[in-house]
């Protein structure tokens, strides 16, 4: 087994284990910390795929900014395991069964798809994930969506302030 395969399976196991721990943790702060572990594992996958720009952006935006915002809100509200609202056990079971059915249907679909047979993702070669090529494409073909996203950010900022301010 090559180093890439070992890293792939290690990062996959870490991502899935941490994602499950996000669900089963009673304390919301622990959930946030496990979700940060998921994001680190996914960033490792990006590095394995040689998408270096996305790996760094994923760390900065998700693990850095969004998760700090979540932690800040949770600590502001003083949530902990005792005040955690719980669903009825039958509702939990129904949710888990329906999610498992969804997973089973899609896995069997992918196993049968002849289109996906013998296709591989190029792991460490290729330079489309580098910031030079991404920047060229972003500021030539995708410059209008890029500018529109700034308007989106402005409206989100105004919306957050308007919603969050006291009457």
């Amino acid at each position: 087994m090559s180093t890439t395969e070992i890293l792939f399976f290690f990062l996959s196991a870490l991502a899935i284990f941490s994602a499950i721990m996000v669900l089963v943790s009673k304390n919301p702060v622990h959930s946030v910390l496990w979700l940060i572990a998921v994001f680190f594992a996914i960033s490792g996958h990006y590095i394995l795929l040689n998408a270096q720009f996305l790996a760094i952006v994923n760390l900065i935006v998700y693990a850095g900014a969004i998760m700090v915002l979540f932690l800040f809100v949770i600590m502001l509200m003083n949530l902990n395991a005792e005040t955690e609202p719980q669903k009825h056990v039958w509702m939990k079971l129904a949710g888990a069964v329906s999610g498992g059915c969804f997973l089973m249907v899609l896995v069997s679909l992918v196993r049968q798809a002849t289109d996906m047979q013998h296709k591989t993702a190029l792991m460490k070669d290729g330079n489309i994930g580098l910031i030079k090529n991404l920047g060229k494409a972003l500021f030539s073909d995708y410059v209008v969506p890029f500018e529109i996203s700034s308007v989106l950010f402005l409206s989100a900022m105004v919306g957050a302030v308007v919603i969050g301010k006291k009457e």
Binding site: K87, H118, A121
Partner: peptide
């Protein structure tokens, strides 16, 4: 790495997310 491995991994993560949305009550 075969593309199916990535599809299985992402399906697992997506399904865990769906189960979380369906089973938790904390917003």
């Amino acid at each position: 790495m075969p593309i199916q491995y990535y599809i299985y991994l992402c399906l697992a993560l997506f399904s865990i997310g769906i189960i979380g949305v369906l089973t938790r009550r904390n917003a």
